[in-house]
C-alpha cells in the first residue's frame, strides 16, 4: 500500500492525541453518573399499609415513612420500611405486632429488585410494570414478582403496588385475638411519590 500513511501508537501524533483525549474522556466518565442520577428517584415519606382480616373484623396497619429508590439507569428498585413505625390505631396492638414480627431483631421489611418491564420516563400515562426481586421480613427472604403502576410527572414518579403476603411464608405465627387467629394472608399496599435525585 504505497503512499498510505500509517500512524502507530508510538508516533508523536498518536501520543499527542492520547494525552489530550484521555483527560477529556476521563472528565466525561466522571460526568456519566451525574447523568444517571437524573434517572434515579428517591423518597422517604411513602405510604404502606397492610390489611389484616379476622372473622367479623379487620384492621389496617399503616406507615408513612416508607423509603424508596428507583434507578432507571441501573435498573434497581429498592424499598424498605421500619416496622416499628406501623400504626394499627391501638398502641397495645402495635406492641403485639412488633413482638410478632420481632422488630428488635428484624427491624425492616424490605424489597430489592429490578424492573422487568421497559418504562417510558417521558410519558405521564400510568404504566403497568412488574418487578422481580427479594422481599425480606422477619429474617426470611423470598423471591417475589410484584405488579405495580408507575406514573411519571413533573414531581417525579408515583409508584403504586399491591400484593398478598402469606405470614407462613415468612415464618410469622399469625397473632390471635383471644382464640381467633388473624388470617395468614395480608394484603400489602404501597403508594409513594419518588422525586428526582
Amino acid at each position: 500500500m504505497p503512499g498510505r500513511r500509517v500512524t502507530s501508537f508510538s508516533s508523536p501524533v498518536m501520543r499527542s492525541f492520547l494525552s489530550i483525549s484521555l483527560p477529556v474522556l476521563s472528565l466525561l466518565a466522571s460526568l456519566a453518573p451525574a447523568q444517571s442520577m437524573g434517572q434515579a428517584f428517591f423518597a422517604d415519606d411513602g405510604h404502606v399499609e397492610f390489611l389484616s382480616n379476622v372473622p367479623l373484623h379487620s384492621f389496617v396497619g399503616v406507615s408513612d415513612v416508607l423509603v424508596g429508590r428507583i434507578d432507571l439507569a441501573e435498573n434497581t428498585v429498592d424499598f424498605y420500611v421500619d416496622l416499628n413505625t406501623l400504626d394499627t390505631g391501638i398502641g397495645k396492638r402495635d406492641k403485639d405486632m412488633r413482638k410478632t414480627l420481632k422488630t428488635d431483631q428484624y427491624p425492616f421489611a424490605e424489597f430489592f429488585g429490578a424492573l422487568q418491564t421497559a418504562v417510558d420516563a417521558t410519558s405521564t400515562e400510568p404504566q403497568e410494570v412488574e418487578v422481580v426481586g427479594d422481599f425480606s421480613v422477619h429474617g426470611i427472604t423470598r423471591s417475589l414478582r410484584i405488579p405495580g403502576t408507575l406514573t411519571f410527572s413533573e414531581q417525579g414518579v408515583r409508584v403504586q403496588a399491591s400484593w398478598i403476603l402469606n405470614l407462613k411464608d415468612y415464618d410469622i405465627e399469625p397473632p390471635r385475638l383471644l382464640i381467633i387467629k388473624v388470617d395468614e394472608e395480608q394484603e400489602i399496599t404501597m403508594d409513594i411519590v419518588l422525586r428526582p435525585e
Binding site: 484521555l22 476521563s26 466518565a29 466522571s30 456519566a32 444517571s36 434515579a40 429498592d78
Partner: peptide, 28 residues
C-alpha cells in the same frame, strides 16, 4: 493523562456503587 484518567475513575466509584447497590437501611 493516565493520572487524570485514574482520578476520574476513582471519583465515579462512589456514584457507581450507590447506583448498583441497596440503600443503607436507617431506623426511623
Amino acid at each position: 493523562a493516565r493520572v487524570c484518567f485514574m482520578m476520574a475513575m476513582l471519583t465515579t466509584l462512589p456514584f457507581a456503587s450507590e447506583a448498583v447497590g441497596q440503600m443503607a437501611r436507617e431506623r426511623a
